Computed example of a mutant assay.
Amino acid sequence: MSFTIKLAGTPYEFQAEASETILQAGDKAGFLLPSACRSGACGACKAQVLSGTVALGPHEPFALTEADQKLGLTLLCSAKATSDCEIKVRDVKLAQKKPEGVQAEIVEKTLLDPSIMRLVLKRADGALFEFKAGQTYAVELPGNQKRYYSVASSQNQKETVEFLIRKVTNGMFTGMLFSDMIRVGDKMRLKGPEGTSTFQTPKGRKAVFLATGTGIASVKSIVSTLVENNDLEGRELFIYWGVRTSQELVVGEIFEEWAAAHPQIHYTGVVSREDTWPGAKGHVQTFAAADNGDMTDMDAYLCGSNSMIKAAVNYLTARCGLREDHIFMDNFGF
């Protein structure tokens, strides 16, 4: 059985099977809907059900609160339609046909750390990439599987895209990537861009970025774009990057250089499992709270693991007054 899903404020609609989530149905129909983690853990795909009914599946309570549900909100990555529905997405501009997959060629593989690789690709057809800083691409794998990675390069760099990829134990794609099974010159299929954790902070409002692991990729993309566009006037950016050991701060020097050259940029590398590290130790949200205090009029961009995002949301909303509608999340379990 299938149901019609209408996107409020747009001329678009698509069919959703009762067995699939609304986000999966939108993907299959070729639409770009707000999303990030796709596992009910971040809230990026939160949408309002204007009419019809849905069955909400497993999700983190902080991603969709009881108060949210009373307002008719749901998570597109977790909800399955049980009737025809009309839904209102957070950003109607993103409810548009998304681009088809493209063939891409690997032009660089650089091991930055035993578990982190810099991967650079160009389009095989010679065309340019078009994306917004903070968005992601999906690497399409056999068996209709996908792996999502945030772009690490500036949106001005259209000839290639850069990714920072962590090796996953027993991971199919990273197992091949970190060996000679995938080499420079090989081709792979990308689909995207996707994601809504783009930079949306107006001038005059401070922005704080909390990242763990390779979640720093989207932060690097956003900040490099602002720097290249000379768009720092009237802004103040606080960046906290959490890793286990200092050797994992593989692009830390870039942020240090930006902070030294631009007084609007503040960067702190936070290490959690290295006793001899002379810098900040512990959790990124602790340092963000200590440095900024009242965060009621700040935007927060959270990029990284489920555990960090959950802890940061709970800590910063309770301790610093950070507003939930000022939180943007990029969650892929880094």
Results as ranks from 00 to 15, higher is better:
L128E: 14
T169A: 13
F287T: 04
P114R: 04
T296V: 13
R319N: 15
G215T: 08
M172N: 09
N229K: 13
P11W: 07
M188E: 09
P202T: 04
T74D: 04
T225Q: 05
T268K: 13
G242W: 00
C320L: 10
E60R: 11
R273D: 12
V251N: 05
H326S: 11
P34R: 04
R205V: 13
L64A: 07
G192K: 00
F209Q: 02
T245M: 09
E17A: 14
G213F: 03
A16P: 00
C45P: 01
S224V: 08
G143D: 01
T82W: 08
S78F: 02
G40L: 01
L50I: 12
I165H: 02
A288P: 03
D27H: 14
D299N: 15
F178C: 04
K187N: 14
K281I: 08
S51A: 12
Q264D: 11
G293R: 05
K109F: 04
D68I: 07
F131T: 01
H326Y: 11
L76R: 00
G293M: 05
A138L: 12
A260C: 10
K132G: 09
F287E: 02
G242N: 04
T110H: 14
T74F: 05
P58K: 11
Q135S: 09
K6V: 13
C303L: 12
F238K: 08
C77T: 01
F209D: 00
I116S: 01
P278I: 08
V54C: 03
V313D: 03
T53Q: 15
N331F: 09
D330H: 09
G72L: 08
A63D: 03
M308T: 06
Q247N: 14
L237G: 00
G126V: 02
L210D: 01
R166F: 09
E66R: 12
F31N: 00
W277C: 08
P99Q: 07
N156T: 11
T317I: 10
N314M: 13
T65E: 10
I165D: 00
A138S: 15
D125V: 07
N314S: 14
A79P: 04
P61Q: 10
S115E: 15
W258Q: 01
S83P: 06
T245F: 10
F31L: 07
F163Y: 06
E228A: 15
C77S: 03
F199W: 09
G252N: 03
G175S: 07
K28V: 11
L322S: 05
Q135G: 06
M117T: 02
T201K: 06
